[in-house]
Simulated assay, not measured.
Amino acid sequence: MVSTIQNSDVKQKDADRAVVVAVTSRAVFESGGDDGDDVSGEGVAFPLLQALQKVNERLLKENPAESLLFDVVLITTDSQQQQQSSRIISSTRHYGLEVSRFCFSSEEDFIESLLKNNVQLFLTTDGNEARRASQEGVLSALLDQQMAFCPSEQLRVMICGDAVVRPDAGLMSRQAAQSFSAQLGEMRQRFGMSDSPLSFVLVTSRGGRESCGEALLTLRSRGVSVDEAYCLAGAPRGPILSLLRPHFLLSDGGDGGLEE
């Protein structure tokens, strides 16, 4: 069973234009704590929500009528956190996080909550959840502890150039990735080359400069211009990840993660 609570403290986004991002509450807030506590501690995805919110704030500053905005949905499948739903909602209010809806479901039904909310990107710390969502055509990314050190003032999205050049995902996952990246590309165009709250980093792990160039041309054909590009030519991805600190890895393969 899926239960959805709309956040009355937040102005709801335009359903036809908003980019819906769902994040698991266990990634945003730490589990546990005393039952008397009204506020949970910050989780690994906390800087991500702040960065998404910063993009929205800048978009609305540029154009108060802007409708292409991030629409954040908090998904809770953890049984312990479901029993503390009021704490999750009050924690969101306490930190001033712009969450539009709270969805509570079982592990078996969380896919239903993603589909009902037209989620375009699902972010979780659970690899099994990421794979299941990807199999249903929902673009997913796996989050890890590195995210706790990501900047909150700028949303940094890493794009896997190898997946762009040689996609190996199913048709639904590939279309979901292309659609989402095109929407982010449109957002990025709202800002100048410097002082942007949204940044794209392209990384190709395999091949040489030709593969990187091909990926750049493919992304540009989708309306996506990258801020930085790196051709690793077979070198491990870990060092560049620790240096660039992206919030998540976007690939046509679905359950992308930050780990090497």
Rank of each mutant, 00 (worst) to 15 (best):
L155K: 01
C231A: 15
L258I: 12
L249P: 00
I159M: 07
L249R: 07
R166F: 13
S181R: 04
F200S: 09
G207L: 10
F180D: 07
L52M: 14
E112S: 14
M1Y: 05
L198C: 07
V224L: 10
P246W: 02
R206A: 13
G223V: 12
T124D: 07
R132S: 09
D38T: 09
M172D: 09
G223E: 09
F70S: 01
L244T: 13
L69M: 07
V165M: 07
V138H: 06
R166S: 14
V39D: 04
G36D: 15
V226H: 03
D14H: 06
S152M: 13
G32W: 11
P236L: 14
G43R: 03
S181P: 00
M147F: 10
L241M: 15
V138I: 15
S221W: 03
G257K: 01
D9K: 04
L143G: 01
S100G: 05
G161T: 06
Q183W: 01
A45K: 02
V19I: 15
E98P: 00
L171D: 15
D71A: 14
S40P: 00
F104E: 11
R188N: 03
N117D: 14
I111F: 01
L241F: 14
C150W: 01
A18E: 04
S173L: 15
P151Y: 12
C103M: 06
S181W: 08
S221Y: 09
E66P: 00
S181G: 09
P167Y: 05
V39Y: 06
P151A: 10
R174M: 14
S225K: 10
S205F: 10
R26C: 11
Q53K: 08
Y95G: 02
G33K: 06
G213V: 04
P239A: 11
P197Q: 05
S140W: 00
L59A: 11
P167N: 13
S67C: 08
Q81H: 06
A141Q: 01
L184N: 08
A141W: 01
P167L: 10
A235K: 15
K13Q: 11
E210Y: 01
